[in-house]
Design a protein around this nucleic acid. Structure first.
Lengths: 163, 163
DNA sequence: TGGAATTAGTTTGCATACTGAGCATTAGGT
DNA sequence: ACCTAATGCTCAGTATGCAAACTAATTCCA
C-alpha cells in the first residue's frame, strides 16, 4: 500500500471538510453578537421567507433530518424568534412563523452572512467564484440522494398564505 | 430586505455544508463494514504513515482540536487499531503506533476511501475535478488560520524513527 | 536554581446532527 | 366505517467537534 499524507490532504472529502470547518468558523465569528449558527440562520431565514412552513418542508429545504429540525426550531422558539402553531388542516404538522424579533434578527443576520460570504470568497479570483459555486451546486445536486438528509424542493403543505 | 431562498441555496457556506454531508454519507456507506468515520480513517492513516506521531501533531495534520483527538484515538485504541505510549523524551506527550490489526484495517479502509472518492468525483467531468480540488485546497490554505482548528504542517516532536 | 510561562493531554459541558423507536394523526383501500 | 399505511413530530441514544478549565511536565530566563 502506497498511501501518503498528500493522498489524504488532497482527497475531496478531507478538503471539503476543511472548507466546512472554515466557513462555519467564519459565520460564527460574524454572527457572534447574535449567537447564531449557520443552521439556525438558514432555518430562520426560510421561516421568514415562507411563513407558515411546516417542519418537514423546512427540513427538506435546509437538508436537515426531522429530529435536527425539531431541536433547531425548539431553540429558535425558546429565544422568541419564531412561533409554532398546530396546522388546522393537518394537526400532526406544526406551522412555523417568525416573530417580530425574528424578522428583525434576520436583517442583522443577513448582513453577517453577507460579510461571511465575502470573507469566504475573498481568496478566489472573481472568475473562479462562479465556477467554484457552480461545481459545488452541481455536486450537491448530482449526489443529493446519497446524503442522509437529502433536499427536496416540493412543499408538503399548501402554501401558508392560502391555508 | 430582499432575501430569497436562492440566496441561501447558492451561498458558499450552504453549498459546502451540503457537499460535506454527502461526502460523509458516502464514506460511511463505503466503510460501513468496518464502522469507521472519515475522521477516524484520517487519524489511523496518519498514524500508520507516521508511526510514533504525538497527539498534538496528529491534530495539526488532521485539523482536529486536541480534545477531539483525545476522543478519536481513544476509540481507535479501544478497538485495538493503535497503541499509545508515553514519550520518553517528553513525558507529557503520547506517541501513537498502529497495531498489526490497525495496519491491516487501513488497507481495507484505503480501498473504501478510494471507492468513496470515485463516487464523489463521478458527477464532475475529468477536467473539472482538478480545478475543483485545487480551488478547495486554495481556499482551505488561504483561510486556514480562520478555522477553529487550523492545520499546521510542522511536527512538534522529532521524527519517531529518530527518537 | 527557582518560578513563571508554555505545552501535552484529559475532562466536562455544550451544540450539532443522525438513527431508530414510538406517538398521534391522517390517508387509502376494502 | 374499519383497519392498515403512511406521515409529522418527539424522544432517547450515539457520534462528532469545539471551548474552557484543569493536571502534569517541560521550558525559559532572570
Amino acid at each position: 500500500m502506497v498511501l501518503t499524507t498528500d493522498d489524504l490532504w488532497h482527497s475531496p472529502g478531507f478538503l471539503i471538510r476543511r472548507c466546512q470547518q472554515i466557513t462555519t468558523a467564519i459565520f460564527l465569528e460574524e454572527a457572534s453578537a447574535y449567537d447564531f449558527s449557520p443552521t439556525q440562520y438558514s432555518a430562520l431565514a426560510f421561516i421568514v421567507m415562507q411563513p407558515g412552513v411546516d417542519q418537514s418542508t423546512l427540513g427538506d429545504c435546509t437538508a436537515l433530518d426531522r429530529s435536527s429540525v425539531t431541536k433547531c426550531v425548539e431553540r429558535l422558539e425558546q429565544r422568541n424568534f419564531i412561533k409554532r402553531e398546530i396546522c388546522q388542516a393537518d394537526r400532526r404538522a406544526r406551522r412555523l412563523y417568525p416573530t417580530t424579533e425574528g424578522e428583525a434578527m434576520l436583517v442583522d443576520l443577513a448582513a453577517a452572512a453577507d460579510r461571511a460570504r465575502c470573507r469566504i470568497l475573498a481568496p478566489l479570483k472573481p472568475e473562479e467564484r462562479d465556477t467554484f459555486l457552480s461545481t459545488l451546486q452541481h455536486l450537491g445536486d448530482a449526489l443529493n440522494d446519497q446524503s442522509r438528509a437529502p433536499m427536496q424542493a416540493t412543499s408538503r403543505l399548501e402554501d401558508a398564505t392560502a391555508g
